[in-house]
Design a protein around this nucleic acid. Sequence first.
DNA 1: TTGGAATGTCAACAACACTGACATAAATTC
DNA 2: GAATTTATGTCAGTGTTGTTGACATTCCAA
Lengths: 166, 166
Amino acid sequence: MADPTPGGESLLFLTDENLRKGIEAMFFAYRGFTADPDRILETMDYGRAHHRAVHFIHRSPGTTVGNLLTILGVTKQSLNRVLRTLFDDGLVEARVGKQDKRERHLHLTEKGRALERALSDAQRARMRAAYRAAGPNAVQGFRTVLEAMMDPEQRRQYQGLKEGSA
Amino acid sequence: MADPTPGGESLLFLTDENLRKGIEAMFFAYRGFTADPDRILETMDYGRAHHRAVHFIHRSPGTTVGNLLTILGVTKQSLNRVLRTLFDDGLVEARVGKQDKRERHLHLTEKGRALERALSDAQRARMRAAYRAAGPNAVQGFRTVLEAMMDPEQRRQYQGLKEGSA
DNA sequence: TTGGAATGTCAACAACACTGACATAAATTC
DNA sequence: GAATTTATGTCAGTGTTGTTGACATTCCAA
């Protein structure tokens, strides 16, 4: 019998069945991933879109609307609807750019930081439990596969944060 | 200095910064995960909900509407809207149960199988590329962490398929 | 000064989720 | 056999989040 693994390593992990399991794992895990913040959000008048906006504004304080549009991958109309409620409710404030006065630099207010903390505490708790249960090696693999699954554009945004982007 | 890792292992992988990276990895990777099927779906009149229904009917031929409701975690009204279009377009057929005539057992037609194949080929291609790039060890870790991230109920459904469920 | 970039806003629409209420048929239980 | 429960379908209304398209404002830059 010819060796089916020219590189010397087993390629059994690439069977369609294994890929299907990976696909379903993503589906079910993503549900768990969003479940806890969702529960908090639904007690307010907010949804996932608000969570995402708050998260990325927290991560990159002073980011512009345009940056946020690129990261979130939605239309400005869609983002604007969300941002307006966050302004109105006093969670986010927009400061006119000093150099370029067309830009609006987004910042969380104290109230906004409180919501961000509540949401990310909930989400991190589950992530931490999963990490702890799986161990550091598994976590390393987890991150490696997810990164390989991103579009190049998304991967750039994911990695670009290491050296600060705002 | 006291040893911060009583078990002897480093717990540095549990820092908030690492957890945040994991959270964003999930966010960006899920976008990539759904991007390819989404492109196919939008050329038709279908969306992600149709994809999910077709996927799970393919995986568990003869599954009932109730089973599907549990797996997908949506309301019957929501699922019904999707199933109706799949019936009307001749992608899925419902057979009245032999033992329990209230049940509708769902099956893909040839046309339905064709769509399923197109969608899962696209999704598997990306998953395969990611798996190959990351290697078997990373894939193992990927699956372990995702599994730990699921709700217990979801985990049961994810695992229950090993021994066939339809 | 003109063109384009960054942003905001109005209107309409679609996908996909939800709740609540009601209907039907069949199984189950008393 | 009657009453109840289960499985499914359907009608109506609502909400979140996305989309296009069009238009206005402000301001940087050539």
